[in-house]
Amino acid sequence: MPEFEPRIVAFVCNWCTYAGADLTGTSRIKYSPNVEVIRFPCTGRIDFMLLLKAFAEGADGIIISGCHPNDCHYTSGNFHARRRWILFRGLLDFMGIDVERVQFSWVSAAEGAKWADVVNTTVEAVRKLGPYENFRKIDRAGAV
């Protein structure tokens, strides 16, 4: 049986993590192709309903990454994201959603190697957890 290849969606900010992931490329540091990036201006823009949408559409894991605290291009967007994530995480956990599948991280524009590391660690972790079929079952049940 072939090894399970998780599909992971990364929501990243334009100024730190997107640029950091560009640097990973410029530095030719290899990482797992299981992660695909969607660009936002700021982590503050990320509506956490997108996480549920991603799980519903078949994602097995999610990475959210932006600027380090105090480094936000827009001063405080990353703090808003962090605060909202703490609340939302509690809610997801309560609802029985596997919050371990969501990796919240900070990768700056100068941290190309860290981005590769975040991706690889998350892919390995999610690979161990297996496909997130439970969520899709719930979602389908709810839709009926």
Partner: peptide
């Protein structure tokens, strides 16, 4: 400046 924090809230 277009950060979009308002959109998420």
């Amino acid at each position: 400046q277009g950060c979009g924090t308002c959109v998420a809230v």
